[in-house]
């Protein structure tokens, strides 16, 4: 790709000062994410994958290095509403309907009623929750709630979607189903997606680029460009190509752990 990367990090470091001394959550992280990429961040806990995502979202400030989002600082990008962020828990407001929850960011951003109505209809359809607008969160299953939370992140048409272990709390079968839907959604919207996970099959199945990270200090140990086609039925997970990539991810994770053993 010839265009500017959507997200570009150069020698990015983030050190938390704690009572037990400094913790190097990120150290010298350099990575480019291009438009339309689906990038997964995988690694054991403490490897800085979530921290990296939070730095992109301006929820954490790096202590050294540079990062740009859409060519500007994360803070400017956040204020320009450049990204939607999906947390591990759906975090829907119990006192708002599904539609009301999706409207929430739009109300905050001052969208008109007509714009809100149109957006709610559009994103509910994208996550296959049409007809659930008037339901309350407690009337939905965990998987459906998480889909509603993705719809909410999509509602204001940001080009970037950042997802922090969005399916971590869901069971395997629901997770498979949602993975398929996320791929479909990505194909239809052509968004740039950053996706944190600790599931190898999930990372390989979803991504065009897999970033393997390891802890103490949090750093990137491998970046794998996926050779899988864009069209991915669930059965692709049994193909030799898929197993090959999963193998490389596993090797990368193991290499990061060697100095621990």
């Amino acid at each position: 790709m010839t265009s500017e990367p959507v997200i570009s990090a150069k020698n990015l470091s983030l050190t938390f000062e704690t009572n037990d001394g400094p913790v190097h959550a990120l150290k010298d992280v350099t990575l480019d994410i291009n438009k339309g990429d689906f990038v997964s961040f995988i690694g054991p806990s403490g490897c800085g994958k979530t921290t990296f995502l939070r730095v992109m979202a301006d929820l954490e400030k790096p202590t050294a290095g540079e990062i740009t989002v859409n060519g500007v600082s994360p803070e400017e990008a956040r204020k320009a509403r450049a990204y939607g962020y999906v947390f591990q828990h759906a975090g829907l407001y119990p006192w708002r309907t599904i539609g009301g929850n999706i409207r929430l960011p739009l109300e905050i951003m001052g969208a008109s009623k007509a714009e809100q109505d149109a957006a709610v209809k559009e994103v509910l359809e994208l996550v296959h929750l049409d007809g659930f607008e008037k339901k309350f969160p407690w009337q939905l299953s965990g998987g459906m709630q998480q889909r509603a939370s993705i719809a909410r992140a999509l509602a204001f048409h940001a080009d970037i979607l950042l997802m922090d272990e969005p399916f971590g709390a869901l069971d395997e079968i629901v997770r498979d189903h949602l993975n398929e839907q996320v791929l479909e959604l990505w194909a239809r919207t052509n968004k740039t997606i950053g996706f944190v996970t600790h599931s190898i099959p999930e990372a390989v199945y979803l991504s065009t680029k897999i970033v393997v990270m390891s802890p103490r200090p949090g750093r990137i140990t491998d970046v794998i460009e996926s050779t899988l086609p864009k069209e991915r039925p669930l059965e692709i997970r049994d193909s030799p190509e898929f197993i090959e990539i999963a193998h490389r991810v596993r090797d990368g994770l193991r290499a990061g752990h060697e100095d621990d053993a």
Partner: peptide, 9 residues
């Protein structure tokens, strides 16, 4: 929830 509010500025 507070972080979420921040992501929406």
């Amino acid at each position: 929830q507070l972080d979420q509010m921040k992501t929406w500025s």
